[in-house]
Design a protein around this nucleic acid. Sequence first.
DNA 1: AAACCCCTCAACCGCGATACG
DNA 2: CCGTATCGCGGTTGAGGGGTT
Length: 258
Amino acid sequence: MVRAPCCDKTGLKKGAWTPEEDKKLMAYVTRYGCWNWRQLPKFAGLQRCGKSCRLRWLNYLRPNIKRGNYTKEEEETIVSLHKTLGNRWSAIAAQLPGRTDNEIKNHWHTNLKKRSKNKPAEAKEMSSEDDLSPNDKNQEQDTEETDINTQNPGSTTQIIESPARTLSPQRASPGDISSVDHNIPATNWDPISDDDFAFLDAYEAPGGNFWTEPFLSDDYFMPNDFLAPFVDPDHSPLYYGEISSPFGFINMDDCNLC
DNA sequence: AAACCCCTCAACCGCGATACG
DNA sequence: CCGTATCGCGGTTGAGGGGTT
């Protein structure tokens, strides 16, 4: 469940996220968006790799995430989509608003897989998969995917893009961020108060140090073309429009960062 | 009460795809 | 076209909780 925090050789933290880290990430992404996952941890003051931040945000902190309590409809959808799509969890998740591919994948392996095994009609496909060696499984998956592709060449079947593409804050509409799902357990979703931005404000002090020296490490380097989403307080919490920055005006409509 | 086992799920890892210079 | 950086996806791991013996 919760892994003991540890550090890798580069000093980056690994393992379970602490509430403080969550808050920092949440506050940063909510305020500035995720313009570059790799650079983000430096700006957010996190000793994490960008990949880890991205995963944490997408699977846990992102607004509108539903957790647990799968409805019957959702489970049926997962099972039926899995029959057609195979292990394309992101595609499946795209059909289930608020669900992440990781969560669906876990739910499948822990619940639905067994359950579907018990249903004779569905068990045919599922149970055979279980008895296969890893190689066989791969082969079967390849076959399955090939079938999908051959069955639907240029198909009009609605296979929505992965949630990471459709729901990721990188491309999410401002509404995605602003409409918070308060069903998220309090332990996971601590509403962000102004205080939570305090650590960010420290870097926005007059002089613009935040954008030029954010949590700078000795070897830090700011790309010349650096851009970041800004927040218009009138369009809280995120606003992507034409904004000014230390680097001039940025028309966020032309900016595909988020 | 203690030991063991099983289950859950957050997080990591590796790789392919895509973007960019 | 090529090399590099970054992103996104799917598979896998393993800590910890709960159930069973």
